[in-house]
């Protein structure tokens, strides 16, 4: 379980660029959940997730991973980073080895595992993200955008994290690539019943298709939280924050305003079709 208590973060305190990035964030994320963190650019999403694996220390407040206080200076940070895997937005920021296999092995090697274990982990992780064996011996720089992203995710998965955080995993991919990555996330969720998965996104369509729980950040504050249905029921608020609500939600909201009795939490096309069909019958 991840638990944040009154986390505040001030960027460059005492300098000319001083700016508060996070305001009093308190949240609890239960084991085995698939969560989405959404918000506008600069809303503090990336800063918040970097707190979870102690890459950034809060100015005040505390963060616990299964009861371990990661903001405590005495906590073993390497252990925290093993337990909380963070995949950054651009795979280009982490791929560096001669081959994809060696690159995925970088994390497990830093953990001091034996060659045997490393090999096993690398193959399990690349299978989990659907990276074919033949790519393992290639240079990571030869891969396509989507494959690079898979390799980057595998590199973190190979450390067997209890929490997997993905920063904008679908940004810059074409629709097919996006769906492929979202499918991987869903599969990882299904195959790891205790793992917490958090993915950052600003695409509401992606969130609607994938997440169970949604946290909405706005200007450094946690503005809305709840199940995906609950959050999308607040369509108007989301639009005010400058987030793109899925088109189907916009349509349903208009219909409700026009007096058609549809439920407010419709956010997938499938669900909308079913409800409208029911009305027409």
């Amino acid at each position: 379980m991840i638990k944040a208590e009154h986390v505040n973060y001030i960027y460059q305190p005492g300098m000319a660029g001083e700016r508060q990035a996070l305001f009093d964030i308190s949240m609890e994320i239960a084991d085995g959940t698939l969560n989405a963190l959404i918000g506008h650019t600069g809303s503090g999403k990336s800063t918040l997730i970097q707190h979870f694996n102690a890459l950034v220390r809060p100015t005040s407040g505390r963060i616990f991973i299964d009861g371990t206080d990661v903001t405590d200076k005495k906590t073993d940070l390497r252990e925290v980073r093993r337990r909380v895997g963070l995949v950054f937005q651009y795979p280009e920021h982490q791929l560096f080895e001669e081959t994809v296999e060696k690159d995925i092995a970088f994390g497990p090697r830093n953990l001091g595992l034996t060659d045997e274990e490393i090999k096993e982990r690398v193959h399990a992780a690349s299978a989990a993200v659907g990276l074919k064996e033949k790519y393992l011996s290639r240079s990571p720089f030869e891969l396509s955008g989507g494959q690079k992203r898979r390799a980057a995710i595998a590199g973190v998965l190979a450390m067997n994290p209890e929490v997997l955080i993905l920063d904008e995993p679908t940004a810059g991919l074409d629709p097919r690539g996006r769906d492929a990555i979202l499918d991987i996330i869903k599969q990882l969720h299904a195959q790891n019943p205790r793992m917490i998965i958090i993915f950052v996104s600003h695409s509401m369509e992606d969130v609607a298709k994938t997440a169970e729980y949604v946290y909405v950040m706005n200007r450094g504050r946690l503005a809305i939280r709840g199940t995906t249905a609950e959050v999308f029921a607040e369509g108007g608020e989301l639009v005010k924050m400058g987030l793109n609500v899925p088109q189907v939600t916009l349509l349903v909201n208009r219909l409700i305003e026009a007096g058609i009795p549809l439920p407010r939490d419709v956010y997938t096309v499938k669900y909308a079709v079913k409800e409208i069909e029911r009305l027409l019958r």
């Binding site: 890459l55 920021h93 970088f106 830093n110 973190v156």
Partner: peptide, 11 residues
């Protein structure tokens, strides 16, 4: 950013 990404992998 790169430093953070590699630190996250135990560097």
């Amino acid at each position: 950013k790169i430093q953070k990404a590699q630190t996250a992998r135990g560097a």
